[in-house]
């Protein structure tokens, strides 16, 4: 009983430190300037002015729409390309696939951050600065995604594959009608990962975008911070809340998949 009590106390304190800043930011986003000066915990009156004002300072809806478009495209791209690659590595017996797999794994040794200078040049040469494709195409496949799906495909029953072959099922049909439908949970995990990491990416969109038409919300948030810091906090908090709510909801709904994905992709591998 005593142990239980102590555990609950520890859990509550930890949860407070983990999440109270987010809740407080939410509260601040409704505050007036005088609430801030008085260090109020809750707003004296619920005002949506900060959200309104944030939308006036930066094209908030445009940024949100951009983020949705980019993250969704990256997600769909990763599902298709990662699963195709993983399928080839597991089911198609061709010469040289071990070499290619090692090559794929070796990309995990290259930090994206150390390639930004030439990648920027590539984008200039392609004429892709300030375009959606510059933010989508480079992340449309990840070694992690291929690896995650490969691990899953390896667990599929061999008998099913043998039976399908016996019936003359082609490689592509097996991919479409068996491999993909039987991988819903893993594909779900990958989708969530792809969406969240694309939505939250920062350095690359910062380099790639200089106009509002294609900018994602994270860079919009930085614009808000630069223009408002230390003068109008509710606006900054409103921007932060808007930037974090979509992915936080996705995380909460898909936590089960994410945990499974992270664990099979990183530890057991």
């Amino acid at each position: 009983m005593m142990k239980k009590m102590i555990l609950y106390i520890l859990l509550t304190i930890s949860a407070f430190f983990m999440f109270a800043p987010i809740l407080y930011a939410f509260s601040v986003s409704f505050m007036s300037a005088s609430d801030i000066n008085n260090a109020a915990i809750l707003p004296s009156s619920l005002s949506l002015d900060a959200y309104q004002e944030a939308a006036n300072r930066i094209p908030l809806l445009q940024f949100l729409a951009n983020s949705f478009l980019i993250a969704t495209s990256v997600m769909i791209g990763q599902i298709i390309l990662c699963s195709l690659a993983a399928y080839a590595f597991v089911f198609i017996p061709f010469k040289g696939k071990n070499v290619l797999f090692i090559l794929l794994l070796s990309t995990m040794l290259i930090p994206f951050e150390s390639t930004i200078v030439p990648n920027h040049v590539t984008m200039i040469n392609l004429g892709w600065l300030d375009t959606y494709q510059s933010l989508i195409v480079p992340t449309i496949v990840t070694p992690f995604g291929v690896f995650l799906l490969r691990q899953h495909f390896l667990t599929m029953p061999k008998e099913l594959w043998d039976a399908a072959q016996m019936d003359g099922c082609s490689y592509f049909r097996y991919y479409l009608s068996f491999a993909l439908p039987l991988s819903k949970a893993t594909l779900g995990a990958l989708s969530i990962f792809a969406f969240i990491s694309s939505w939250n990416s920062y350095l690359w969109p910062l380099i790639m975008t200089s106009n509002d038409n294609v900018r994602p919300i994270q860079i919009g948030l930085k614009m808000l911070v630069s223009s408002q810091a230390s003068t109008n906090w509710p606006i900054v908090m409103a921007g932060a809340i808007i930037a974090l709510v979509p992915t936080l909801i996705i995380l909460f709904l898909g936590l089960k998949y994410i945990r499974r994905g992270l664990l099979s992709g990183s530890i057991k591998g």
Partner: peptide, 13 residues
Amino acid sequence: SQLGISGAASSAI
């Protein structure tokens, strides 16, 4: 929860 919150949003807060 932090896994679903961008570094930019956490930093702004």
